[in-house]
Design a protein around this nucleic acid. Structure first.
Lengths: 219, 219
DNA sequence: GTCTATAATGAGATAGAC
DNA sequence: GTCTATCTCATTATAGAC
C-alpha cells in the first residue's frame, strides 16, 4: 500500500534490541580506539576489530568516520555538563561566595570521578583532550563544552573579583589543560617524579589550579 | 679502483650547498606540516608540496616518515635545552635561593621568546605538545626533554622545600601542559574570554604556574 | 540490520634514468 | 642528489545478497 511506504519514511521501525546492542558496542569500541590513537591514527578496521563486528557495520551505524567521531563525543557530553552544572549549583547553594577551589572542583571532579570508575569515561577524557588540543574540532568544543565552561568562567571571575576576563579565561584553559594532563600524562609525571607510585591525587591538581587562578588577581 | 670504493663507504663526499638547502627546506616543511596535522594526519605528499620538492626527495632526505619526524624533533632540542639551562644557571648565579617564579620562567621563557619571533619555533612548540601528549613518543621525551626537565624539577623542589617529589613532578607536568596550551590554544582562550584580543602575556602563565607550585607545599 | 565482496582512493616506499 | 614512474598495501566507502 502506498500509505505504508510513506509512513515508513516518516517514522521508521524502532531498532531491535540486537541492533541497539550492536550500535552501542560499536560506539564503545570507537571511543576506545579514537582515544588511543586520535582521529587520524584510528581506522575503522581497528574499531571493527575492537567491537568484533564487520567493518561495514561500523560504517552503517557510524555514518562515516567523522560522523562516528562526533557521535562518540556527543554521547557523554550532555551527561558531563549536567553533572558539572549540578555540582556548581550545589556549591552555590551552600555558600553565596564559594571559593575558587570549590568552583574548580565542581568542574573537575565529575569528570575525574567518572574516569576513575569507568574505562569508557577514561577514554572519553582522552578524547576531550584531543578535541581541546586540535583547532579542527573547534566547532565541537564551541557547541558542546563552551556553554558550560562559560558559566564556570563567570563564577571564577566573580570569586576572584578579577576584572581582566581574558586572564580568567586563560587561567581556565590552563586548568583544563592541566586536568587532561593529569589523566593522560601520568607516565610523564612518573618519569619526572622518579617514582613508580601512580599517585592519582585530585587534590594536588585542584590546589594547583585554584592557587594559580587566585594569583591572577594581582597580575 | 678498489680503494676509492672503500673510501666512499667510510667518508662520503660532503653534501653540496644545494643539497643542504634542499634538506633544510624539507625539514622546515615537515616541521610545519607535522605541527599542523600531527604525525598521523601529516602525509609525505603534504610535506613535499610545502617544500615544493618531489615526494621521493622527502623520503631520501627524511629516511621515512617516522625518522623524518624524529629528525625534526631532534633538530631544535639541544638548542632549547641549552637556552633553558643557561637561564637557570643565570638565575642561580644571581641568587642562592631563586624563587619558584624565577625558575619556571627560566624554563618557559626561552621557548616562548623563540616562538614569538620565528614561525619555525612556533611550529616546534606545537610539535612538543604532540610529543608530550602521546605516550607513543615516550622515548623521545625521555631522551631529549626529560634530562633538562629533571634539573628544573630538582630546583623547584628545592625552592618550595617540598618533600613530596611526585607532587612537584605533577605540578611541573601541569606547567608544561599549560605552557603548550598557552601557545596552541589561544583560540579557546579567546572563545571563553569573549574577547578578540589575542593577549599573549607570558606573565599570566608564569604567575599561574608558580602560584600553583608554591601552593603544593601545603598539600 | 547484517555480512561478503569489492570499488576507489590515497598512503609510504622504491627503482632506475639522469 | 634529483626526478619520473611505479609498486604495494591499507584505507574509507559502497553494492547487493540474505
Amino acid at each position: 500500500m502506498r500509505r505504508e511506504i510513506i509512513e515508513q519514511k516518516q517514522r521508521q521501525r524502532a531498532p531491535s534490541q540486537r541492533a541497539l546492542a550492536t550500535r552501542k558496542r560499536i560506539l564503545d569500541a570507537a571511543e576506545q580506539v579514537f582515544a588511543r590513537n586520535g582521529f587520524d591514527g584510528a581506522t575503522l578496521r581497528d574499531i571493527a576489530a575492537e567491537a568484533d563486528e564487520a567493518v561495514s557495520l561500523v560504517h552503517h551505524h557510524g555514518g562515516g568516520k567523522e560522523t562516528l567521531f562526533r557521535q562518540v563525543i556527543g554521547r557523554r557530553a550532555e551527561e558531563l555538563s549536567k553533572a558539572r552544572i549540578q555540582a556548581l549549583e550545589l556549591a552555590q547553594s551552600l555558600s553565596t561566595n564559594p571559593t575558587t577551589e570549590t568552583i574548580l572542583s565542581a568542574f573537575i571532579t565529575p569528570l575525574l570521578t567518572n574516569a576513575a570508575n569507568d574505562i569508557g569515561w577514561q577514554a572519553y577524557t582522552r578524547l576531550i583532550a584531543h578535541v581541546s588540543a586540535d583547532e579542527r574540532w573547534r566547532d565541537i568544543a564551541a557547541e558542546l563544552f563552551d556553554p558550560t565552561a562559560l558559566r564556570f568562567v563567570d563564577s571564577v571571575q566573580n570569586a576572584t573579583t578579577q576584572s581582566n576576563r581574558t586572564a580568567v579565561a586563560a587561567g581556565f584553559v590552563y586548568t583544563i589543560s592541566a586536568t587532561l594532563a593529569h589523566i593522560a600524562a601520568g607516565w610523564r609525571i612518573n618519569a619526572l617524579g622518579e617514582d613508580e607510585a601512580p599517585q592519582d591525587n585530585h587534590d594536588i591538581l585542584i590546589a594547583f589550579c585554584a592557587a594559580g587562578m587566585n594569583r591572577l588577581q594581582t597580575v
